[in-house]
């Protein structure tokens, strides 16, 4: 089962490697990983998606909590939440495909953020599923490059992850 774990991490050198190391050391999967500083300079916020049965998930959250650099964590998939992945995709855009790509981008509510004589760079935000569908819809086009941020997530409503 897919889970989204959100972590407040000490913004210390080496803290990230402890989290990543834990996953490789104990044979857990990481599907996506997103990490950036927060409004509090001493903290980073890390969102990772992983898969595993309930027993594995219990161990993953316990093991993460045991790391001294992990200040707090929540399994977002336990409740209502919002998840977003950002994708930048560069495609060959020439001839008839130029219009077609523009139309498909509009349907997905994407934006063309860079235009070259023969290329478009499209920015698209959404769940991982939506981004996958967009890539599938672009099957006819010549995809040159895809870059995704990995999932960032937050709980809905009053529930917050903070100190």
């Amino acid at each position: 089962m897919r889970r989204i774990i959100s972590i407040l991490l000490e913004n210390e050198p080496g803290a990230l490697s402890r989290v990543i190391g834990l996953f490789s050391q104990r044979g857990y999967n990481i599907e996506t990983l997103n990490v950036a500083p927060t409004e509090d300079v001493t903290l980073s916020r890390l969102t990772l998606t992983t898969t595993g049965d309930d027993k594995t998930m219990e161990q993953i959250t316990k093991q993460l909590n045991k790391l001294v650099d992990v200040v707090k964590l929540v399994d977002l998939s336990e409740g209502a939440h919002i998840e977003r992945d950002l994708m930048l995709i560069k495609v060959r855009a020439s001839g008839a495909m130029r219009d077609e790509i523009k139309r498909t981008t509009d349907i997905f509510r994407g934006q063309i953020v860079d235009v070259g004589p023969n290329t478009y760079t499209i920015q698209l935000t959404g769940t991982g599923e939506k981004l996958d569908s967009f890539v599938a819809a672009m099957a006819e086009a010549d995809i040159l490059e895809v870059v995704r941020s990995g999932v960032a997530g937050i709980s809905r409503g009053e529930k917050v992850l903070r100190l």
Binding site: P13, G14, R18, G21, Q25, V68
Partner: peptide, 16 residues
């Protein structure tokens, strides 16, 4: 050393 010992320590510090 901090990297090599990471999986086998309770915690580690690098003095800066």
């Amino acid at each position: 050393m901090v990297g090599i010992s990471r999986p086998i320590v309770k915690h580690s510090f690098m003095v800066r």
